[in-house]
Simulated scan of single mutants.
Amino acid sequence: MKSIVFGGVKFIFLVRGEKLPQAKIGNDYGGSYLIWPRKNGLWDVRWKWLDWQEITTQQFDDEHAAFQFAHEHHLKRMKKLGG
């Protein structure tokens, strides 16, 4: 697992077969994005504020594309919030 914090939001990246430890799911940031590879080889994204939410049904070809989608989602949220 690796993670980065950008703009007060945590982006968490898992590798194939890795589970997210419960201790890493806290609300100590302005939300979290989880990015991980599915069994079918495509990448998935979830957003968490209070609970994990599916923000798209789209799956992505690689980790970078999934991160780009999550980052754009974050920027749109910030724009709506006036930030």
Score class of each variant (00 low, 15 high):
residue 10 K to Q: 13
residue 38 R to P: 03
residue 80 K to T: 05
residue 28 D to W: 14
residue 36 W to A: 04
residue 66 A to K: 00
residue 42 L to Y: 09
residue 62 D to L: 08
residue 67 F to E: 00
residue 12 I to L: 07
residue 6 F to Q: 13
residue 50 L to R: 14
residue 56 T to A: 08
residue 23 A to K: 13
residue 79 K to H: 09
residue 3 S to T: 11
residue 9 V to E: 00
residue 68 Q to D: 12
residue 36 W to E: 01
residue 58 Q to K: 15
residue 38 R to H: 14
residue 12 I to T: 11
residue 73 H to S: 06
residue 9 V to P: 02
residue 34 L to T: 00
residue 27 N to T: 13
residue 81 L to A: 12
residue 9 V to H: 00
residue 27 N to P: 10
residue 56 T to W: 08
residue 64 H to D: 07
residue 61 D to Y: 14
residue 54 E to Q: 10
residue 78 M to Y: 06
residue 12 I to S: 04
residue 26 G to S: 14
residue 26 G to A: 13
residue 71 H to R: 07
residue 43 W to E: 00
residue 47 W to P: 00
residue 20 L to K: 04
residue 74 H to G: 01
residue 55 I to M: 08
residue 83 G to Q: 10
residue 45 V to L: 05
residue 24 K to A: 13
residue 57 T to W: 12
residue 40 N to I: 13
residue 54 E to K: 12
residue 25 I to W: 04
residue 32 S to H: 07
residue 47 W to N: 03
residue 35 I to S: 00
residue 32 S to F: 02
residue 55 I to L: 08
residue 14 L to W: 04
residue 1 M to I: 09
residue 64 H to T: 09
residue 72 E to I: 05
residue 3 S to E: 12
residue 71 H to Q: 06
residue 71 H to G: 01
residue 35 I to C: 02
residue 41 G to N: 12
residue 17 G to I: 06
residue 25 I to N: 04
residue 5 V to P: 04
residue 13 F to W: 11
residue 78 M to I: 08
residue 25 I to M: 13
residue 40 N to K: 13
residue 67 F to T: 00
residue 8 G to D: 07
residue 12 I to F: 04
residue 25 I to K: 09
residue 51 D to P: 02
residue 16 R to Y: 15
residue 71 H to I: 01
residue 16 R to C: 09
residue 8 G to M: 07
residue 65 A to P: 01
residue 60 F to K: 01
residue 22 Q to N: 10
residue 62 D to V: 06
residue 24 K to L: 15
residue 17 G to S: 10
residue 30 G to M: 12
residue 58 Q to F: 12
residue 74 H to L: 08
residue 36 W to R: 05
residue 76 K to G: 03
residue 57 T to K: 15
residue 52 W to A: 02
residue 58 Q to G: 03
residue 21 P to Y: 13
residue 12 I to D: 01
residue 3 S to M: 11
residue 83 G to D: 11
residue 75 L to S: 04
residue 41 G to I: 09
residue 13 F to K: 05
residue 2 K to M: 12
residue 52 W to C: 01
residue 27 N to Y: 14
residue 66 A to G: 05
residue 47 W to Y: 15
residue 20 L to M: 14
residue 50 L to Y: 14
residue 14 L to F: 11
residue 53 Q to A: 13
residue 78 M to R: 07
residue 66 A to E: 00
residue 34 L to M: 09
residue 28 D to F: 13
residue 48 K to L: 03
residue 63 E to A: 08
residue 77 R to A: 07
